[in-house]
């Protein structure tokens, strides 16, 4: 991998974001709206139920913020790819000496900065608006953040591979794919409260361990270390599978001559 090429690709996204303030606004717009809705619901429930239950309702806010980290990481990869398709620049990239690993790495870096911006904005608003301090998760935040970002990158590569294969007809997958996982990764509720048949499915995905861990830390200040181990191991597996899928689809599109359709779409 050539870091000069990765930095050039990252620089391109940096130019893009600084030239288009609306793109920066978009990083915060939906997350802030989500946060306000969930924040207001939380305050409403806290005021109208007993204090102990009111404490549990804060899990919604924590879940929402961490979910958004994963979603933004996925978007960082998938939307960066779509930016190249939309601007008919993809062929310029694919006929330049850019390896697919360098291209994907640049989208990972862009994804990292996207979630950093979103996370800072959400943390600030949740603290001042709803007295929810995300830093109560203390150092646990770092592995939570890292694991959700890794899974977001895997989903981003899968979304990109599907768009590569089916073209812009599959564009909506860039937004839809993370939401396929939302019901089963226990973002807002415990795994044990899910239907029995869905619980084994939930444990197959790294975010489940993270969201369970978050609730455990918020409740007792600690969590099962094994959960972090399982999440990390599963993330390595999913990253490898998603990377293989991306390269396989890229080669398939070359074999079938589908790559060039992005020049005219």
């Amino acid at each position: 991998m050539n870091f000069r090429i990765i930095s050039a690709l990252v620089m391109r996204y940096l130019f893009l974001y600084t030239r288009s303030p609306m793109r920066l606004v978009e990083l915060a717009f939906w997350p802030v709206l989500d946060l306000i809705v969930w924040g207001n619901v939380t305050v409403f429930i806290q005021k109208n139920t007993d204090p102990e239950f009111g404490h549990y309702v804060l899990f919604f806010l924590g879940g929402m913020i961490l979910w958004d980290i994963m979603f933004r990481a996925q978007q960082g990869v998938a939307i960066s790819f779509l930016e190249d398709v939309w601007t008919r620049n993809l062929l310029n990239i694919f006929v330049a000496p850019v390896r697919s690993s360098e291209y994907i790495s640049s989208t990972f870096i862009v994804g990292f900065f996207r979630i950093l911006i979103t996370a800072v904005v959400l943390s600030f608003i949740s603290w001042f608006g709803y007295a929810f301090n995300v830093f109560q998760l203390s150092w646990w935040l770092i592995p939570f953040f890292a694991n959700l970002m890794l899974f977001g990158w895997s989903l981003g590569m899968i979304s990109t591979a599907l768009i590569l294969r089916w073209g812009l007809a599959a564009e909506s997958l860039a937004w839809a794919i993370p939401f396929l996982f939302q019901p089963v990764v226990a973002v807002f509720y415990n795994v044990e409260d899910m239907p029995a048949w869905s619980q084994p499915i939930a444990w197959c995905f790294p975010p489940t361990y993270i969201f369970e861990g978050m609730r455990s830390v918020m409740k007792s200040g600690t969590m099962n270390w094994n959960y972090l181990g399982y999440a990390a191991a599963l993330n390595i597996l999913y990253l490898a599978l998603a990377g293989w899928l991306f390269v396989w689809v890229l080669n398939l599109t070359r074999k079938r001559g589908l790559l060039t359709k992005f020049a005219t779409q």
């Binding site: 090429i5 050039a8 690709l9 930016e83 620049n89 020049a263």
Partner: peptide, 21 residues
């Protein structure tokens, strides 16, 4: 039939490709 990203300035597009190469 291909284009450089339309929302960047000309020098920005060219600088990116200069760095890639």
């Amino acid at each position: 039939y291909t284009a450089l990203p339309g929302n960047l300035l000309v020098w920005q597009n060219l600088l990116v490709f200069a760095r890639i190469y």
